[in-house]
Simulated assay, not measured.
Amino acid sequence: MKTVAEGVAYVFGNNIDTDQIYPGKYVEFTEMEDIRQYAMSGSEEPDLAKVFQPGDIIVAGTNFGCGSSREHAAMTLKGIAVGAILAESFGRIFYRNAINLGIPAITCKGIRSLVHRGDKVRIDFTTGEIVNETTGEKAKAEPMNEYMMSILQNGGIKPMIRKMQEDKKKKEL
């Protein structure tokens, strides 16, 4: 995984809950190809999965991902290959689900006033620097710590743990 994300911004409001990210009526789907097509389908951008390009960035206000603890909400964003999620704040469980699935979730106060739909955004996860490449404006977010970067660089917490176990076995041999 890269330490920098660059992509087009898709901007959402405050209190975007998990049913807006991935409506519960689709929870029966288990394959990523099925799940991904419903990304943000309960929101004001119900066709996001059709226009979203890998690496594009979701920008939101406060409390992004509030609601249920269903992992599907984060899975659907991983399925569309979101480059990162920038929000003023996150629902706690959604935030951990996103990180554990290998999705960069970055908190940045005031980000919605800095970025508008269609702007090109660059995020450095290790320094916390955010640049709106369309306007030249900058913001500073909390950089991701080493442990979180390790999770992201391994593609999620499960692949990271598998790798740690494999490395341990190699050392024992």
Rank of each mutant, 00 (worst) to 15 (best):
G79S: 14
F94K: 11
Y147R: 10
D47G: 10
F94R: 10
L86E: 10
A98D: 05
A60I: 06
P143Y: 05
S43R: 10
M144G: 01
N14C: 02
I21Q: 08
Y95E: 10
K138T: 13
V59L: 01
N14Y: 03
M40S: 05
T135H: 03
S68E: 11
K158Q: 13
S89I: 07
S68A: 11
V121M: 00
I130Q: 05
G65C: 09
D119V: 00
N100W: 07
I123Q: 06
M75Y: 08
L48V: 03
I123C: 07
G7R: 10
D119C: 01
G91T: 08
R162W: 08
R162P: 00
T134C: 06
E172K: 14
A105H: 04
E133K: 13
K2P: 12
A141I: 07
I58Y: 07
S43I: 08
N63W: 01
H116S: 15
P23H: 06
C66M: 09
T30Q: 13
A5G: 00
I103D: 04
R92V: 08
M164F: 09
L173N: 12
V115W: 02
M75F: 05
I157W: 02
I157L: 15
G110V: 04
I80H: 05
A9K: 06
K140N: 06
I21V: 11
I161W: 04
F29P: 01
E28G: 13
E88Q: 14
G155P: 03
A98P: 02
E133L: 12
V121I: 14
P23M: 04
T30I: 14
E33P: 01
S150H: 12
Q153V: 03
F64P: 05
H116T: 10
G156H: 13
E44P: 01
P143A: 07
A49W: 03
C66E: 10
A141V: 06
N145H: 12
K50R: 11
Y95P: 00
E172D: 10
E44W: 03
V11S: 00
Y26A: 11
I16D: 07
V131I: 15
C66G: 08
I103W: 01
A105E: 09
A141G: 04
Y95Q: 12
R117K: 13
I130V: 15
M32D: 09
E142F: 02
G13S: 07
E71D: 14
M40D: 08
V8R: 15
N97S: 09
I57A: 01
N132F: 02
A87D: 09
T127R: 02
F94A: 10
K120M: 08
Q53E: 15
R162K: 15
V131R: 13
M148P: 01
A87L: 10
